[in-house]
Protein backbone atom coordinates (compact mmCIF):
# COMPACT_ATOMS: atom_id res chain seq x y z
CA UNK A 1 0.00 0.00 0.00
CA UNK A 2 1.52 3.30 -1.13
CA UNK A 3 -1.30 5.31 0.43
CA UNK A 4 0.61 5.99 3.65
CA UNK A 5 3.80 7.50 2.16
CA UNK A 6 1.72 9.65 -0.21
CA UNK A 7 -0.54 10.77 2.64
CA UNK A 8 2.39 11.61 4.88
CA UNK A 9 4.05 13.52 2.07
CA UNK A 10 0.86 15.50 1.45
CA UNK A 11 0.66 16.31 5.13
CA UNK A 12 4.28 17.42 5.04
CA UNK A 13 3.49 19.70 2.10
CA UNK A 14 0.80 21.57 4.03
CA UNK A 15 2.87 21.54 7.21
CA UNK A 16 5.55 23.45 5.27
CA UNK A 17 3.08 25.83 3.65
CA UNK A 18 3.35 29.27 5.17
CA UNK A 19 -0.09 30.36 3.89
CA UNK A 20 -1.68 27.76 6.13
CA UNK A 21 0.03 29.14 9.20
CA UNK A 22 -1.14 32.64 8.36
CA UNK A 23 -4.68 31.36 8.10
CA UNK A 24 -4.43 29.59 11.43
CA UNK A 25 -3.03 32.70 13.09
CA UNK A 26 -5.94 34.67 11.69
CA UNK A 27 -8.51 32.24 13.04
CA UNK A 28 -6.87 32.22 16.44
CA UNK A 29 -6.84 36.03 16.49
CA UNK A 30 -10.54 35.94 15.68
CA UNK A 31 -11.13 33.59 18.58
CA UNK A 32 -9.23 35.93 20.89
CA UNK A 33 -11.33 38.82 19.56
CA UNK A 34 -14.46 36.85 20.45
CA UNK A 35 -13.44 37.06 24.11
CA UNK A 36 -13.40 40.85 23.84
CA UNK A 37 -16.76 40.85 22.08
CA UNK A 38 -18.11 38.52 24.74
CA UNK A 39 -17.07 41.05 27.39
CA UNK A 40 -19.15 43.71 25.69
CA UNK A 41 -22.26 41.53 25.51
CA UNK A 42 -22.61 41.03 29.24
CA UNK A 43 -23.79 37.57 30.24
CA UNK A 44 -23.44 36.20 26.73
CA UNK A 45 -19.68 35.60 26.78
CA UNK A 46 -19.82 31.83 26.49
CA UNK A 47 -22.40 31.89 23.74
CA UNK A 48 -20.51 34.46 21.71
CA UNK A 49 -17.13 32.76 22.06
CA UNK A 50 -18.61 29.41 21.00
CA UNK A 51 -20.69 30.91 18.20
CA UNK A 52 -17.89 32.94 16.72
CA UNK A 53 -15.17 30.37 17.36
CA UNK A 54 -16.96 27.39 15.82
CA UNK A 55 -18.31 29.49 12.94
CA UNK A 56 -14.82 30.78 12.11
CA UNK A 57 -13.55 27.21 12.32
CA UNK A 58 -16.23 26.12 9.84
CA UNK A 59 -15.70 28.94 7.36
CA UNK A 60 -11.92 28.75 7.29
CA UNK A 61 -11.98 24.98 7.38
CA UNK A 62 -14.33 24.84 4.41
CA UNK A 63 -12.22 27.30 2.44
CA UNK A 64 -9.14 25.26 3.26
CA UNK A 65 -10.72 21.97 2.28
CA UNK A 66 -12.10 23.34 -0.98
CA UNK A 67 -8.98 25.12 -2.17
CA UNK A 68 -6.43 22.63 -0.90
CA UNK A 69 -8.70 19.75 -1.96
CA UNK A 70 -8.80 21.03 -5.52
CA UNK A 71 -5.05 21.59 -5.53
CA UNK A 72 -4.38 18.02 -4.38
CA UNK A 73 -4.67 16.55 -7.83
CA UNK A 74 -4.82 19.49 -10.23
CA UNK A 75 -1.55 20.98 -8.97
CA UNK A 76 0.26 17.68 -9.46
CA UNK A 77 -1.08 17.43 -12.99
CA UNK A 78 -0.20 21.01 -13.81
CA UNK A 79 3.39 20.92 -12.63
CA UNK A 80 4.04 17.42 -13.90
CA UNK A 81 4.75 15.76 -10.57
CA UNK A 82 2.15 13.17 -11.51
CA UNK A 83 4.50 11.81 -14.20
CA UNK A 84 7.00 10.87 -11.58
CA UNK A 85 4.41 9.18 -9.36
CA UNK A 86 2.71 7.17 -12.10
CA UNK A 87 6.01 5.79 -13.41
CA UNK A 88 6.51 4.21 -9.99
CA UNK A 89 4.68 1.08 -8.84
CA UNK A 90 1.70 3.09 -7.59
CA UNK A 91 -1.95 2.58 -8.53
CA UNK A 92 -3.83 5.69 -9.54
CA UNK A 93 -6.40 4.91 -6.87
CA UNK A 94 -3.66 4.74 -4.27
CA UNK A 95 -2.48 8.16 -5.36
CA UNK A 96 -5.99 9.64 -4.98
CA UNK A 97 -6.56 8.05 -1.60
CA UNK A 98 -3.11 8.99 -0.32
CA UNK A 99 -3.63 12.60 -1.33
CA UNK A 100 -7.08 12.66 0.27
CA UNK A 101 -6.05 11.17 3.59
CA UNK A 102 -3.00 13.42 3.71
CA UNK A 103 -5.20 16.50 3.52
CA UNK A 104 -7.61 14.99 6.07
CA UNK A 105 -4.70 14.64 8.45
CA UNK A 106 -3.87 18.31 7.91
CA UNK A 107 -7.50 19.27 8.50
CA UNK A 108 -7.62 17.11 11.60
CA UNK A 109 -4.56 18.76 13.11
CA UNK A 110 -5.79 22.26 12.30
CA UNK A 111 -9.29 21.46 13.65
CA UNK A 112 -7.74 20.28 16.90
CA UNK A 113 -5.64 23.45 17.11
CA UNK A 114 -8.67 25.68 16.47
CA UNK A 115 -10.89 23.81 18.94
CA UNK A 116 -8.11 24.02 21.51
CA UNK A 117 -7.89 27.76 20.89
CA UNK A 118 -11.64 28.12 21.51
CA UNK A 119 -11.33 26.05 24.67
CA UNK A 120 -8.49 28.30 25.80
CA UNK A 121 -10.58 31.40 25.08
CA UNK A 122 -13.44 29.93 27.14
CA UNK A 123 -11.15 29.08 30.05
CA UNK A 124 -9.98 32.67 30.00
CA UNK A 125 -13.48 34.12 29.64
CA UNK A 126 -14.96 31.91 32.38
CA UNK A 127 -11.94 32.20 34.63
CA UNK A 128 -11.60 28.44 35.12
CA UNK A 129 -12.76 25.09 33.83
CA UNK A 130 -16.40 24.59 32.98
CA UNK A 131 -18.57 22.02 31.21
CA UNK A 132 -19.00 24.40 28.28
CA UNK A 133 -15.36 23.86 27.40
CA UNK A 134 -16.02 20.14 26.79
CA UNK A 135 -19.34 20.63 25.05
CA UNK A 136 -17.70 22.23 22.06
CA UNK A 137 -15.57 19.22 21.18
CA UNK A 138 -18.44 17.07 19.85
CA UNK A 139 -19.52 20.06 17.76
CA UNK A 140 -15.92 20.46 16.55
CA UNK A 141 -15.86 16.78 15.55
CA UNK A 142 -18.99 17.36 13.46
CA UNK A 143 -17.31 20.34 11.79
CA UNK A 144 -14.27 18.19 11.04
CA UNK A 145 -16.56 15.61 9.40
CA UNK A 146 -18.10 18.36 7.29
CA UNK A 147 -14.61 19.43 6.19
CA UNK A 148 -13.67 15.89 5.16
CA UNK A 149 -16.84 15.67 3.08
CA UNK A 150 -16.09 18.99 1.39
CA UNK A 151 -12.53 17.83 0.68
CA UNK A 152 -13.84 14.69 -1.02
CA UNK A 153 -16.29 16.78 -3.05
CA UNK A 154 -13.55 19.23 -4.10
CA UNK A 155 -11.25 16.34 -5.02
CA UNK A 156 -14.00 14.76 -7.09
CA UNK A 157 -14.62 17.95 -9.05
CA UNK A 158 -10.93 18.57 -9.64
CA UNK A 159 -10.68 15.13 -11.28
CA UNK A 160 -12.68 16.28 -14.29
CA UNK A 161 -12.78 20.04 -14.35
CA UNK A 162 -10.50 23.07 -14.17
CA UNK A 163 -9.45 24.38 -10.75
CA UNK A 164 -11.51 27.57 -11.06
CA UNK A 165 -14.68 25.73 -12.07
CA UNK A 166 -14.08 23.10 -9.41
CA UNK A 167 -13.89 25.81 -6.76
CA UNK A 168 -17.15 27.28 -7.98
CA UNK A 169 -18.90 23.89 -8.04
CA UNK A 170 -17.59 22.99 -4.61
CA UNK A 171 -18.77 26.30 -3.13
CA UNK A 172 -22.20 25.77 -4.68
CA UNK A 173 -22.36 22.27 -3.27
CA UNK A 174 -21.46 23.68 0.12
CA UNK A 175 -24.28 26.23 -0.03
CA UNK A 176 -26.85 23.74 -1.27
CA UNK A 177 -25.64 21.19 1.25
CA UNK A 178 -26.28 23.70 4.00
CA UNK A 179 -29.81 24.25 2.69
CA UNK A 180 -30.54 20.54 2.48
CA UNK A 181 -33.47 20.73 4.96
CA UNK A 182 -35.22 23.06 2.53
CA UNK A 183 -34.60 20.56 -0.22
CA UNK A 184 -36.22 17.93 1.95
CA UNK A 185 -39.21 20.15 2.73
CA UNK A 186 -39.52 20.81 -0.95
CA UNK A 187 -39.38 17.08 -1.64
CA UNK A 188 -42.18 16.48 0.84
CA UNK A 189 -44.53 19.32 0.07
CA UNK A 190 -44.44 19.67 -3.70
CA UNK A 191 -47.59 18.72 -5.56
CA UNK A 192 -45.79 17.41 -8.59
CA UNK A 193 -44.58 13.83 -8.33
CA UNK A 194 -41.71 14.60 -10.69
CA UNK A 195 -40.50 17.53 -8.60
CA UNK A 196 -40.80 15.39 -5.48
CA UNK A 197 -38.73 12.62 -7.05
CA UNK A 198 -36.05 14.98 -8.33
CA UNK A 199 -35.69 16.89 -5.08
CA UNK A 200 -35.66 13.66 -3.10
CA UNK A 201 -32.87 12.32 -5.35
CA UNK A 202 -30.93 15.57 -4.98
CA UNK A 203 -31.43 15.45 -1.23
CA UNK A 204 -29.68 12.10 -1.11
CA UNK A 205 -27.12 12.82 -3.81
CA UNK A 206 -25.83 16.12 -2.42
CA UNK A 207 -24.03 16.12 0.92
CA UNK A 208 -26.37 16.88 3.80
CA UNK A 209 -24.18 19.43 5.50
CA UNK A 210 -26.88 20.93 7.73
CA UNK A 211 -26.57 17.73 9.79
CA UNK A 212 -23.12 18.74 10.87
CA UNK A 213 -24.06 22.18 12.09
CA UNK A 214 -24.50 21.96 15.83
CA UNK A 215 -22.99 25.34 16.62
CA UNK A 216 -26.14 27.14 17.75
CA UNK A 217 -27.29 24.29 19.98
CA UNK A 218 -23.84 24.03 21.50
CA UNK A 219 -23.82 27.76 22.17
CA UNK A 220 -27.17 27.35 23.95
CA UNK A 221 -25.74 24.69 26.22
CA UNK A 222 -26.83 21.52 24.49
CA UNK A 223 -24.46 18.60 23.99
CA UNK A 224 -24.67 16.76 20.71
CA UNK A 225 -26.26 13.38 21.56
CA UNK A 226 -23.99 10.40 20.88
CA UNK A 227 -26.58 8.84 18.57
CA UNK A 228 -26.43 11.93 16.40
CA UNK A 229 -22.63 11.92 16.43
CA UNK A 230 -22.55 8.24 15.50
CA UNK A 231 -25.18 8.66 12.79
CA UNK A 232 -23.36 11.60 11.28
CA UNK A 233 -20.03 9.80 11.41
CA UNK A 234 -21.48 6.79 9.59
CA UNK A 235 -23.13 9.10 7.06
CA UNK A 236 -19.88 11.00 6.47
CA UNK A 237 -17.84 7.82 6.01
CA UNK A 238 -20.34 6.42 3.49
CA UNK A 239 -20.67 9.67 1.59
CA UNK A 240 -16.89 10.15 1.43
CA UNK A 241 -16.40 6.56 0.26
CA UNK A 242 -18.92 7.14 -2.53
CA UNK A 243 -17.28 10.44 -3.56
CA UNK A 244 -13.82 8.90 -3.55
CA UNK A 245 -15.03 5.91 -5.58
CA UNK A 246 -16.40 8.35 -8.16
CA UNK A 247 -13.14 10.33 -8.12
CA UNK A 248 -11.08 7.17 -8.61
CA UNK A 249 -13.40 6.05 -11.40
CA UNK A 250 -12.81 9.30 -13.29
CA UNK A 251 -9.14 9.62 -12.43
CA UNK A 252 -8.39 6.07 -13.60
CA UNK A 253 -9.61 6.90 -17.07
CA UNK A 254 -7.99 10.25 -17.40
CA UNK A 255 -5.18 11.15 -19.79
CA UNK A 256 -2.47 13.61 -18.81
CA UNK A 257 -1.12 15.54 -21.71
Amino acid sequence: MKIIPIALNTFRESARDRALYNLMVFVILLIIASVVMGRIAVGQEVKIVIDLGLSAMTVFGVLMSIFLGIGLVSKEIENGAIANILSKPVRRTEFILGKYFGLCLTLFVSSVVMAAAITGALIYAQGGSDAAQWRLWPAAWLIFLELTIMTAVALLFSCFSSPALSALFALLIFLIGRWSPDLKLFAETSNSAAVRAVSRALYHLLPNLANFNYINETAHGEVAPWRMIAGNTVYAVCYIAAALAAAALIFNRRNFK
Binding site: Y203, H204, L205, N211, G231, V234, C238, Y239, A241, A242
Partner: peptide
Protein backbone atom coordinates in the same frame (compact mmCIF):
# COMPACT_ATOMS: atom_id res chain seq x y z
CA UNK B 1 -23.14 0.83 -2.49
CA UNK B 2 -21.83 3.74 -0.46
CA UNK B 3 -24.27 6.21 -1.93
CA UNK B 4 -27.13 3.94 -0.91
CA UNK B 5 -25.62 3.48 2.55
CA UNK B 6 -25.24 7.24 3.02
CA UNK B 7 -28.86 7.76 1.99
CA UNK B 8 -29.89 5.10 4.50
CA UNK B 9 -27.88 6.80 7.26
CA UNK B 10 -29.54 10.08 6.32
Amino acid sequence: VFLVLSAAAQ
